[in-house]
């Protein structure tokens, strides 16, 4: 299953530090867009932004937010959102891969889900992530490890103590989902005897199971976990990352307990999760149009009205420009640690 954990996000996700860092990296300012390249192609055109999930979730919210502001900046007649759910997002991604690269059809990408599926050789993958024309990342947030509300587990040793008595129960939505891969990584790096319980309908259901004390651990997006913590279903234990994150100063990264190959494994995965929610078009969009799209995206994510609305609807943005994202994805897919690649392949081989 190819699916980024699309828990409805919210919360005090502090992106300001991150956004500021990106801001300095973004050289192009609004208004300067058309001065550099001739973007008259887009005027009067309708740009379609495909969201590979149903309306109502996080991907949809970000897609609609970007479309609303990016269309006018691009100079397009309109930028419309089209929901195309199916196969956990893979249906739309495959279609976008094969679409006409005229720059008029873009998609919100579940970057981490795409990458894990591709690297793991999942059935149904008909694309190569590095070849897409990446326009930019909209948002990204780290994953976290959570335990049941009021659980005694507070250290790797506590988990290993459970493991010595019985298999540690880790929840997951399904084989091949990000949370399944993370459960496998936890099993490996902490050397656990684990029972990965799959078949939950989604993160909220796993959290309610955690609240009933049926499970020991679960990993999800930070916003999903924060919501469960507010509902007193779960407590956030660690950041699923090799290093501390300045946006989450209170959270200990699991990297602190690890070294060597195990640390590298967590790092490889965390880098991939950082791909977050991004926008891309089919491979081979003509250079000038791609530049227009990337410039318009960069201008959109610093637009004041855009940021105000993003804050209002509790959908924080953490942008990365298209060129940087492309480079990151090319390097991620090119240099995967063997351990991690093996683990992904194992996750997807039924």
């Amino acid at each position: 299953m190819f699916q980024y954990n699309d828990a409805a996000g919210s919360g005090k996700f502090q992106s300001s530090a991150c956004a500021a860092a990106i801001l300095s990296a973004v050289a192009i300012l609004p208004g300067a867009v058309s001065a550099q390249t001739d973007c008259s192609f887009f005027s009067g055109q309708t740009v379609e932004l495909v969201v590979p999930f149903n309306p109502g979730g996080g991907f949809d919210a970000y897609g609609r937010l970007v479309a609303k502001y990016m269309g006018p900046i691009l100079g397009a007649d309109s930028m419309i959102v089209r929901n195309q759910p199916g196969a956990g997002g893979m249906l739309a991604t495959n279609q976008t891969w094969a679409a006409d690269p005229d720059g008029l059809m873009l998609q919100v990408m579940s970057t981490s889900g795409m990458l894990t599926a591709e690297l793991g050789g999942a059935a149904g993958v008909g694309f190569e992530s590095a070849e897409f024309s990446w326009i930019g990342r909209v948002s990204g947030e780290p994953d976290v490890v959570a335990v049941g509300f009021g659980s005694d587990i507070a250290s790797p040793e506590a988990i290993q103590a459970i493991s010595a008595e019985r298999p540690v129960r880790i929840g997951s939505s399904g084989v091949g989902d990000i949370d399944y891969i993370e459960a496998q990584i936890l099993t490996k790096v902490f050397d656990l005897d684990s029972n990965i319980v799959v078949g939950f309908s989604g993160a909220p259901e796993v959290y309610s199971s955690l609240a009933r004390g049926e499970l020991d651990l679960f990993t999800s997006s930070y916003s999903g976990a924060r919501q469960a913590a507010a509902a007193e279903s779960a407590s956030i234990l660690w950041l699923f990352d090799d290093n501390a994150d300045p946006d989450f100063p209170d959270l200990t990264p699991i990297g602190e307990y690890l070294e060597g190959d195990n640390l590298a494994l967590v790092k490889a995965h965390a880098d991939l999760v950082a791909g977050g929610r991004a926008i891309a078009g089919p491979p081979g969009i003509p250079e000038d149009r791609l530049t227009c799209l990337r410039d318009a995206f960069d201008a959109t994510v610093v637009d004041e009205a855009f940021l105000a609305e993003s804050a209002e609807i509790n959908r924080p943005v953490a942008p990365i420009s298209g060129a940087d994202l492309q480079e990151t994805i090319v390097s991620l897919t090119g240099n995967v640690p063997q351990d991690y690649a093996d683990l992904l392949i194992e996750s997807y081989s039924n």
Binding site: A8, G9, S10, G11, Q227, A230, A231, E232, S233, I313, N314
Partner: peptide
Amino acid sequence: LIVGIDPG
């Protein structure tokens, strides 16, 4: 979640 109320 949009309006900032956490169930619980």
